[in-house]
Every structure is written in C-alpha cells, then in structure tokens.
Amino acid sequence: MNLFRLVADLMHLVSIFILLLKMQKTRSVAGRCSRISFKTQALYATVFLTRYTDLFANFQSLYNTTMKVFFIASSLYIVFLMKFKFKATNDPRLDTFKAQYVVGGAAALALIVNYAFTVQEVLWTFSIYLEAVAILPQLFMLTKTGEAEVITTHYLFALGTYRGLYLVNWIYRYWTEYYVDWIVWIAGAVQTGLYCDFFYIYFTKVLKGAKFELP
C-alpha cells in the first residue's frame, strides 16, 4: 500500500458517500429528476460482484476485505434505492445510453484477452473492462441534459480523482516493486481518459462558482 492508492481508495469512498448524500437530498424534492444514471450504478454493482468472487478465498488484509464488502454492499444498496425507493425521481428517458453494448463488449474482450482462462479470472477481467466504461451512461446523460447539479459534479470529480491517482500508484509500484499488470493499466488509462472533458469543465467552471454547463 502506498499513499497514492490509499488516497485513491478514500476518494472512491467519498464518491459513494456524496452519491448517498445526493440521494437523501433528492428524496426531499421527490418528482424531480435525480440526474444520476441508474445504468452506471447498475454497471458498478456488476463490476464489484464479478471482481470480488475471491472475497472468501483470497485474504489480503482486513483493509482489503472490508473495502470489498463495502463496495459490494453500497453499490447494491444504491441500485436498490434507485430501483425501488426513489423510482419516481429516476427518469429513464434521459438514461438512454445503450449499456448492453458495453456489457457485451467487455464480456467478449474478457473471453479473448485475459491472464488465464478460468471462470474466476475471466470474471475478474470482465469487471476490469466493464469498470473502464461504466461511467459512460452517466457522462452521456450529462451531455444530453447539458448541465449538472454541483453535487453531481463533485461525485464525478471524486470518481475521476480516484482513477487518476491509481495511474500514479501504478507508476510508483512499477519503480518500487516492479509491479506490472497490463490489463489493469490499459483499462485504467482508458477509464481515466474518459474524465478529461469533464475535468476541464469542472476546473474552469464549477470551481469558480459557475454552473456546470456544456458549451
């Protein structure tokens, strides 16, 4: 564990808490579109469920296990809230990204490009590829509405920072322990790249107090 990875994981936690906070806030203005993509959240739940199949078999540390349990539990809880509790505030007409294509694409690629052709390893690889593109429905929704609430932009910023710090962590680990993981690196680079446009607008507008609006 290094500082980059620790802060990255903490930013990931922060992003989930921001999302839960936003959903609590949304409840008080029921009927209004929450502007959170259900598809993205469902994809994240799928990512965690397929990645942590080693939850009971592969013990790394208490930290590792606790985080895995938290990510699985919180992602399922968020999906549950959006699907049942706050169903009225979720507008599927804005959530139109074709998620089945990225699921299919990630599954096909995981079957072809993996480290070992075993059920667990292919599921893990699938989760890596799927996580790389899981934010697309959310970003697509943002493009469609052309604007976002401040709290939604903070959520995306926390997620993007978490990904960016993982890139730094890999460079650090390569030099300090000769750690190499091409599948994770390339998928991670693609994932971080997806946030570039968002980061630009976040820094030039939201942090200066302006509304998040697409040009």
Binding site: D54, N58, E121, W124
Partner: peptide
C-alpha cells in the same frame, strides 16, 4: 501459478 492469488488492488 494462480494469477488471482497476488491481486491486492481493489
């Protein structure tokens, strides 16, 4: 060697 055994990142 099981490639999964050494995976320590989340």
């Amino acid at each position: 060697q099981d490639p999964h055994a050494k995976k320590d990142e989340l």
